[in-house]
Design a protein around this nucleic acid. Structure first.
Lengths: 264, 264
DNA sequence: TGGTGGATGTCGCGT
DNA sequence: ACGCGACGTCCACCA
């Protein structure tokens, strides 16, 4: 029984299924009119409205409105959720400690409650992260600069770990900070902190700092100049100069389409 | 009709309701076994598994597994979603430009499809943000330092906007950076950037920088010292010294409870 | 458990 | 549209 659904259940019927599902480790979705109160790292209050509430077996709760990618309220994994009926109304409460946080969802009307058996899970494979950029640089250090020799990754300094530490053609220490996308001032400051820390380790050796990213903003460029730091433009993945390549077919007719010969 | 649900629909039946719902501006949830491909700012691939897919009328798509608060895949608001059936299988595609991004969800099995009419919406009221901390300081500048006089908020500098700009008792310029929670090295660097920028505006006036937050990490403390910056401990909301007050009742018995006299 | 930094971060606000 | 910084950021990793 992969999915159970109750249409416009009473609050008591909803309670029964909810507790069953919480016990089973099933994922639950609730849709209806509700209010939400949160207290913990901050405090928030949300008046009545129609929302989708998702309860995961790992303790996560999400409250979604019809807009935006982020939930309007939530509780992170590891929380304990509990359902009850007060004054004839369903209430879902989620709590945790460290930090102490509580979320209450009170339903005025329940349109639908579903419980899902979740069995399978695959791992996400992702390409284009900073990790991929690092691999690219280590494969071909010349992308940073001719004669650059990487010596360590995540090298510890008093200011924190340096993405890539190495030497330039002249044998001077080089600190490389990697970013997978266009960067702002904070990246320049981060690099500067690392360079200062390494500079204290290697006095009078003229430690250099190089920011490697697809691009930088103007203000960041100025900041780098000011601090004597460099910038080198590299994309996180090889052929990716945002060339908008691919999509070689004029398909994608809108409307109601059933079956189609186009691959992809 | 606030909620429509199809239990184990055929892929074609699902298609019909999906397109109807996309057209109506209804919110949709799909549960079933699917694969997900994403290409855009990065590239990702997710093998078969049981997931909850949420499609919002504003163009948002979320793909949730049974774990974690963040969706394993998603598309932000403003995207265009479209459903089709290929080789007898439902596919939901979401696309946008700037940046060019595409998400494909292909279903192997559909356990449930629901469409919800979302009518009402209230605004979230939140307490304890940096904004609240700012109000606290402006109400009582002595929290920062005796004799501190705020002169401007969000004051522009070449390095960006300063949270609170003012003068100390001796008439020296003061840059205040606010953080609602315990801070790390990046906040110290941010303050330093602002102080340098203001210092260039007021040469030889000895511009001061003060970080106002609940607390700082050790390394950040050292960083502040090194740069001649100060730290002042202030909570974002008044009575909030994380005193763990309240909860003055031994209620909260677990288990199946229907109705209860406890308020709250 | 806390520190540190990445993220397809998202989001709002200003230019 | 881009720049910039906040966020109840979340999250993995590591001491």
């Amino acid at each position: 029984m992969p999915a159970t659904v109750l249409h416009r259940p009473t609050h008591r019927d909803a309670l029964v299924l909810l507790e069953e599902a919480f016990g089973d480790g099933r994922m639950v979705t609730l849709f209806g009119r509700c209010t939400v109160e949160y207290d913990g790292r901050a405090t928030s209050s949300l008046g009545p409205g129609d929302r989708l509430v998702v309860c995961k077996p790992d303790g996560t709760i999400l409250v979604h409105t019809d807009e935006k990618r982020k939930p309007v309220n939530w509780q992170p994994p590891g929380c304990t959720h509990r359902a009850s009926v007060r004054d004839g109304r369903l209430r879902v409460r989620s709590e945790r400690t460290t930090p102490a946080e509580r979320l209450d969802v009170r339903f005025e009307r329940i349109d639908q409650l579903s419980a899902y058996e979740v069995t399978d899970r695959s791992d996400l494979e992702l390409l284009g992260s900073e990790e991929d950029l690092r691999r690219r640089i280590l494969d071909d250090p010349g992308l940073v600069e001719d004669g650059f020799v990487p010596q360590a990754t995540e090298r510890e300094t008093t200011a924190g770990p340096v993405d890539i530490f190495g030497e330039d053609a002249a044998g001077r220490p080089v600190v490389v900070e990697l970013k997978r996308r266009r960067v702002g001032p904070s990246a320049a400051s981060q690099l500067q902190r690392y360079v200062e820390a390494v500079d204290a380790e290697f006095p009078d050796e003229g430690v250099r700092g190089i920011l490697v990213a697809p691009s930088v903003t103007d203000r960041t460029e100025a900041l780098l100049d000011e601090k004597g730091l460099s910038f080198v433009a590299v994309e996180p993945v090889a052929g990716d100069e945002r060339s908008d390549s691919g999509d070689g077919g004029g398909d994608e007719n809108g409307g109601h389409e059933e079956d189609g010969n186009e691959e992809n």
